[in-house]
Computed example of a mutant assay.
Amino acid sequence: DGCISLARTISAGRSSYRICGEASTMADLRAIGEHLADIHGQHEHQSLIHERSHRRFLDAFGGQEHLALLGRFAETWRELSEAIRRREKLATDERTRAQRLDLLRYQVQELDDAGLSPDEDEELAAERARLMHYEKLREGLLAAWDALRGDESGGAVEQLRVAQDNADELAKIDTKLEAAAGLLLDAVSQAEDAARLIRAYLEAMEEDPERINEVEAPEPHCRPEAQVRRHGARDA
């Protein structure tokens, strides 16, 4: 019915408080009471004592036009506060971005100075395998070279050439052998190419025990995987 009842009961030296019949506290009772009534005595109104009430009284005295202006001011203040907050956030983001760019430039420079290639890990692994199996590679390639070239009559290249010459002659008698002659010609060419590659590889081979040690145990901070982990390049 629009009524609010406030009650305080003192019994045996103890006080209890109720608001509309519900148990409450003295602080709640005082807070509500200040907005419902003033206590008059030999001094001024009690609500005037509280500084937090002064501005409310002044605003109410200004009337509806003043209250409307006050509402617009409050909204403008909120918008200004939000704009200031956004500006500060943008400034913070810009500083963070600049710091991030500086860090990335430093990391890129370190990677450039390290002279790493995109396939550095794979290249080192391949070089390590070649150096560690030098003798096995050399012996196997020499055997392959002998099988392909051998002496002037015993190598696979010469045997293929003889077969190809014979097929050419026979194809003149029966054209059905032209396909076989062509295949043998290709085989001779491929065998010669293989022999040249093997020979070049053998001539370029060089045993280097010191390089084996370098590849096997580089300085920890110089290892490609260490540089990559340090700068997070794998995730990038």
Rank of each mutant, 00 (worst) to 15 (best):
98 A>Q: 12
188 V>T: 05
50 H>P: 02
204 A>Y: 03
71 G>V: 01
87 R>Y: 12
33 G>Q: 03
137 L>V: 09
148 L>Q: 05
49 I>A: 15
128 R>T: 09
173 I>V: 15
69 L>E: 14
219 E>F: 00
117 S>W: 02
85 R>G: 13
142 L>I: 09
175 T>D: 09
38 D>I: 03
124 L>C: 02
7 A>D: 11
226 A>Y: 10
27 A>P: 00
43 H>Y: 03
127 E>G: 00
231 H>V: 04
3 C>M: 11
93 D>K: 09
121 D>N: 06
85 R>Q: 11
195 A>Q: 04
227 Q>N: 09
42 Q>E: 09
213 N>T: 12
236 A>M: 14
231 H>E: 08
126 A>D: 10
75 E>D: 14
161 R>Y: 04
47 S>G: 02
158 E>L: 01
212 I>N: 02
117 S>T: 13
196 R>L: 06
54 H>L: 13
140 G>Q: 08
43 H>N: 11
20 C>L: 09
28 D>G: 01
116 L>C: 06
103 L>R: 15
45 H>K: 08
132 M>I: 07
118 P>F: 09
63 G>C: 12
162 V>Y: 03
182 G>K: 15
201 Y>E: 11
7 A>T: 12
41 G>E: 03
21 G>K: 11
150 G>Y: 01
123 E>K: 10
198 I>R: 03
102 D>N: 10
199 R>W: 00
54 H>K: 11
235 D>S: 11
57 F>C: 01
143 A>H: 12
105 R>P: 02
178 E>W: 01
71 G>A: 15
208 D>L: 02
14 R>I: 03
196 R>N: 08
125 A>C: 02
157 V>W: 00
85 R>N: 09
180 A>C: 00
124 L>R: 15
12 A>H: 05
52 R>F: 13
39 I>V: 10
211 R>G: 04
79 E>G: 08
79 E>I: 09
62 G>H: 01
78 R>Q: 12
78 R>L: 14
82 E>D: 15
16 S>A: 10
144 A>T: 05
21 G>L: 13
159 Q>G: 02
85 R>S: 13
87 R>H: 11
44 E>F: 07
127 E>T: 04
116 L>I: 13
90 L>H: 10
89 K>N: 07
16 S>T: 15
74 A>N: 11
117 S>C: 05
24 S>A: 15
151 D>S: 10
206 E>G: 08
165 D>A: 14
235 D>F: 11
112 D>K: 14
120 E>P: 01
225 E>W: 01
212 I>M: 08
108 V>T: 10
145 W>N: 07
60 A>L: 13
209 P>W: 08
205 M>S: 05
114 A>G: 05
18 R>K: 15
154 G>V: 03
140 G>W: 03
2 G>T: 13
162 V>C: 06
229 R>Q: 14
152 E>V: 01
66 H>N: 09
204 A>C: 02
91 A>F: 00
202 L>P: 02
208 D>M: 01
45 H>V: 00
191 A>K: 03
31 A>W: 05
104 L>K: 05
74 A>W: 12
236 A>G: 07
4 I>A: 04
108 V>I: 15
